[in-house]
Design a protein around this nucleic acid. Structure first.
Lengths: 140, 140
DNA sequence: CAAGATTGAGTCGTCAATCTTA
DNA sequence: TAAGATTGACGACTCAATCTTG
């Protein structure tokens, strides 16, 4: 058992490669996985959320969302709006262009996933997800 | 098949969580996984490499190495030196402090891996690595 | 011109400090 | 005081442009 500890390293290396691959597929739409995740979360919530709510759903820190929404706003995919009952809060609302980009992005993303998992049996896919989630469980 | 494509997303989410976990373990040493990977590659190569060679071994871009070595140098873990036969090249050489940090970092890293994989059977570990490498193969 | 390294700008994430509103 | 958002500084990565040396 003198494993030099390659499991975690190869996991993270693979994740990086997969992300680069996916991001390259999304780039022509002006999207990245981060942007798509945000748009997708907003759409699932009925097209708008406060920044804090969005941070919770993406499980990241609020200051990250501030900047991500900055970029999405510059892209024209989201606009900031006032929250009805709390003057401290700002809503991020998906624009029509954002709706289109999100739909197309999810389509591309699904294609990419199918492409990358083409050689995987249903059992292998299940195993991969199960093992990865088990690992994440312990790291949390 | 109307998979919303959660396999890639959960892989990358898990990788992020695992990295945060590992980085937190290394932080008291003044290390991160990125820094440790660089030091470890240098040690394996006999304690020094040109920046281009280091970039190849870490499979990343050269400008990234320039900045990573900047930080390692500021930490006192590495120093830049002239290359013997090519005045264009600069060597990154591990310092004594870098050697200590690397050894200790690898130890911590191995502990972290054992901790995270505590609930995994030998078969599961093999499967995880095999599946992840198969996926990376296709993404490359 | 090629190669090695660096710099500048941009993305995506963190944390700590700050400002406004509740 | 605490909650919501922002800002500034930094880590780690990318690409494109530049400078020096071969």
């Amino acid at each position: 058992m003198h494993d030099t500890g390659r499991v975690l390293v190869s996991l993270m290396h693979a994740a990086g490669t997969v992300q680069a691959h996916s991001d390259a597929r999304l780039a022509p739409l002006g999207l990245s996985m981060a942007k798509l995740a945000a748009l997708s979360a907003l759409r699932q919530a009925g097209d708008s959320l406060s920044l804090t709510q969005l941070a919770e759903r993406l499980s990241c820190v609020k200051s990250n969302i501030t900047q991500l929404v900055d970029r999405l706003e510059a892209d024209g995919f989201v606009r900031r709006a006032a929250a009805p009952n709390d003057r401290r809060a700002r809503l991020a609302a998906v624009t029509p262009a954002g709706r289109l980009a999100c739909d197309e992005g999810l389509r591309i993303q699904a294609l990419t996933e199918r492409e990358l998992l083409a050689g995987f049996s249903a059992t292998e896919k299940r195993q991969l997800v199960a093992l990865v989630e088990k690992l994440e469980q312990r790291a949390t």
